[in-house]
Amino acid sequence: MANKNWYKLTFQIESDSEEIIIWKLNELGIFSFSFEYLIKTDNKKEVNIWLPIEEWDESSISDFEQIISKLLNINDSKNQFFDWSIIKEEDWLTSWKKYWGPELIGNHFLILPCWINSDDKFKDKKIIKIDPGAAFGTGSHPSTYLCLEKMENISFSKKRVLDIGSGSGILSIAARLLGAKEVYAVDNDYLAINSTNSNFQLNFGNSKSLKTYLGSFNEIIFKYQFKKFDFVLCNILAEVIKEMIPNIYHCLRNDAEVVFSGILNSQKDEIIKILIQNNLKLLDISSKKDWTCISAQKGS
């Protein structure tokens, strides 16, 4: 099998633009990116994005540049804002990994890239080992961070958990580490399902307590008759969450809880309104930077 080549796109942003860039990349289905502080200044960051060459032609590249330029109000008539380069698969793997290190989240979790050995100082942490192949998140995104912070204060012992939009499987793994009896993971991307499965096995040596489902949540729920979950975890974009809330309600047993993340602060009120309309009681709201995490409960 021939090695895949990649475009590496680099450009600089003001630090306070990081969250809107993350939101847009997630909306576009782009998950291979990093942010690096520039030594010369504290208020600028370098954005690095990796894109598979076989999926990006001149037209899609031009469209992407226009999207980012509009987002940042950049007028780049001389085409000097974006720096494109081509790197080979093996170079891409090396360049990607150098941006990752252990990530402490909340009071109990440590996200650990699988190529790094755990330090003794972290022996009291719940370690989540991740090898996402640079396709999905490592927990550093504020929405994932907020979810994990919320989860560590919930008792998952012997519970049945549904993870919607599982990605690299971080929340599924966290639920199992916290004592969940069964974890059901749903994603509409086969790469995400593969990543969830492989990372689950990486952490537990098997996937006996994990069931994965490929497809749209609103289709999967009816096909497999999902019902009576104790917890639902949903870390995706707000526009998608809005459409799922009625069906999520029907997945929950009475008094069960749901945690929503991936919501921008500006979208919070609309999500809360839809929750109330669907008889889900608001329990808690937390925020980090421009992102909000909402937990709610189905009444008896």
Rank of each mutant, 00 (worst) to 15 (best):
L214C: 02
K223C: 01
S155H: 07
K228G: 01
L178G: 08
I170L: 13
K159Q: 14
S143T: 15
I220M: 09
K159V: 04
G139W: 11
F204H: 12
K129L: 14
E219M: 07
Y213V: 01
S195I: 09
Y184R: 00
C147S: 15
S166Q: 01
A175I: 07
K211N: 13
Y190E: 12
K158T: 09
N194A: 11
T212M: 03
Y184C: 13
Q201Y: 02
I128T: 03
L162W: 02
K126C: 02
D230S: 09
A174N: 06
A180E: 05
S209L: 07
A180D: 04
S140T: 04
K223Q: 14
I128R: 02
S198W: 02
S195C: 15
S143R: 10
G133T: 09
L233A: 06
L162G: 05
K129M: 13
Y213Q: 00
E149F: 01
G137R: 11
E219Y: 11
L146F: 01
R176K: 15
V183K: 02
I193V: 15
A192E: 08
S198H: 13
G137K: 11
S155G: 08
T212E: 04
F222Y: 13
V183H: 05
L177I: 13
K150Q: 13
I164M: 11
I221V: 15
H141E: 07
I220P: 02
Y190P: 00
N188D: 14
S157R: 06
A134S: 14
G205N: 09
I127H: 04
N218K: 11
F231K: 09
F136H: 10
L146E: 05
S157W: 03
L214R: 00
E182Q: 11
N188I: 14
F217E: 09
D131H: 04
D187L: 04
G133R: 09
D163A: 10
P132S: 14
F156C: 09
S143G: 04
L177C: 04
T138A: 05
S157C: 02
G215A: 03
G133A: 10
K125F: 14
E219D: 15
A135P: 00
A174K: 08
N203V: 12
D163T: 03
F222M: 04
L202E: 07
N188L: 12
I127F: 08
Y145L: 07
G169R: 06
F226M: 14
F200G: 04
I154K: 08
R160L: 03
L177A: 05
K227G: 00
G165H: 06
F136M: 10
F226P: 08
G133C: 10
P132M: 01
F217Y: 12
A135V: 00
D187Y: 03
F204P: 11
A134Y: 03
F204I: 13
G165R: 05
S216N: 15
G165F: 07
K150V: 00
F226L: 15
D230C: 03
F222V: 04
S216R: 14
A185I: 02
K159D: 00
F156Y: 14
D189Y: 05
